[in-house]
Amino acid sequence: MSEIRFEDVTKIFGRSVEAVKDLSFIIEDGEYVSLIGPSGCGKTTTLRLLAGTILPTKGQIFFNDQPMENVRIQDRNIGFVFQHFAIFPHMTVRENIAYGPTVRGRSRKEIEHLVETALKSVQIGDKAELYPDSLSAPDWQKTALARVLASEAEVLLLDEPLGALDQKIREEFQLFLRDLVKKEKLTAIHVTHDQAEALTISDRVAVMNKGKLIQLGTPADLIYHPNHLFTSFFVGESDFLEGVVIDDTKKEAKVRIGQSIIKVKNMGVEKGKRVAVAVRREFFQVEQISTKDLSNSLPGIVIEDQFLGLLRRVRIKLENQQIIEAKIHAKHPINFKENEKVRVNIEPSITRCFDYPKEGIASALEM
């Protein structure tokens, strides 16, 4: 297995286009890490830097403390799996898998052992003599994965590897892929636009924006403990309540929002400071105004209650004229009517309170 370390890595294309900027992070031996972020944020550039197809403008990348600056692609012990199936159409599955150890000069006996072991690992031994045009999409990807295993790679780079699969198959393949990586003791770096995929398959997830690493944490960290405004915005769905801190002395700070005061988790906010309180839309609790007093709630008026399948989206205008969206279960006992007065309950422990950005929330969240 391999530990991967980025130290202040920047890649500039042309004279001034910073594709990635000052990346510093560590991927542990055997860890499965996904990179997510908006298009153009630097995910694929980071993968290419790891592969060695491009070199950093400054900074260094290490595999097990060895700098990669002068190490050729073929000597990095890396395997690749892409969205568009990169296997040879004129070769059988067996021949495709044998290609890597063959070009590495392995003996015939070694090649046969590596191929058989890889076929067994990815569960396509019964398709070994077939050509790619006879395979299903999942079996194409299994062939590509088996080729990586037979090449004895220690690091697996995956660029949208499940993008061409149907949703149902894709969900099943996620578990297969994670189990394979763990069983084979690989270190995996996975680029995807599918957040659910990243959160399901990964030990940790890196959130990127504008070439910078915003947060690297476990899936639960990103959902429940985002440490940056952008993470709250990009991972899942959150609304940002604008307010002012009126008490910062306790574990739960008090924030005035409109004419109401709510308690929020104190993340080091200061009294008198303007803040943005992030709340995930699934965490809002909407109740009719006649319900017993809700001590940590905001009054509002329903704009719309829309059915979304398993969930409903309730759009609410708060007393400060801010519009929020609550995601509630489709079986919620109350069907809210347009212009109905409600209260939105907020559990302090699930809030995240950030200093209000000088440039405004919209500008701070630009992608």
Rank of each mutant, 00 (worst) to 15 (best):
Y131V: 09
R76V: 09
Y32E: 09
D75N: 15
G105Y: 00
P333A: 11
L149V: 07
K341E: 14
F336Q: 14
N296C: 11
I111M: 03
V205E: 05
Q259G: 13
L23E: 03
I301Q: 13
F336R: 15
W140A: 06
A364H: 03
K43Q: 06
A19I: 04
H228G: 12
Q195M: 03
L55C: 07
F234L: 12
Q123E: 08
P89T: 04
E28A: 15
H113I: 04
M367G: 09
I261M: 07
D239W: 03
E160A: 03
E116L: 02
L216C: 11
F230A: 14
A220M: 14
P219D: 13
T117S: 13
L229K: 12
E287M: 08
Q141S: 05
Y32V: 15
H90L: 03
A362Q: 09
D247E: 12
I324H: 09
E304A: 15
L199W: 01
Q174K: 06
M208F: 07
I54P: 08
T231S: 15
V9T: 04
L165K: 02
L23T: 03
Q74K: 15
I73W: 00
H90W: 00
G40S: 08
R48Y: 07
N96K: 05
V245C: 13
E171F: 00
K358E: 13
F240M: 15
E325A: 15
K109T: 06
L158C: 03
D159K: 05
H193M: 04
I323W: 01
G14M: 04
D133V: 04
M208I: 06
N64G: 11
S260T: 14
N96F: 00
M68L: 15
D248R: 13
I73M: 12
V181G: 03
S39Y: 03
D194V: 04
K183T: 10
L229V: 15
K109P: 00
K271Y: 00
H329W: 05
H329E: 07
K254S: 14
T218V: 12
N209V: 05
I361G: 08
F25N: 11
A188P: 02
R170E: 02
I36F: 01
Q167H: 02
S134L: 06
L157Q: 09
F82V: 10
E171T: 04
M1Y: 01
P38C: 07
Q66I: 13
Q66V: 14
Y131K: 15
Q259L: 09
L145N: 07
L318E: 12
K292R: 12
S151H: 01
A196Q: 09
L165A: 02
R48Q: 14
A51C: 10
C353V: 11
V314D: 10
D248F: 04
A326K: 07
R178G: 03
A128W: 00
D293E: 14
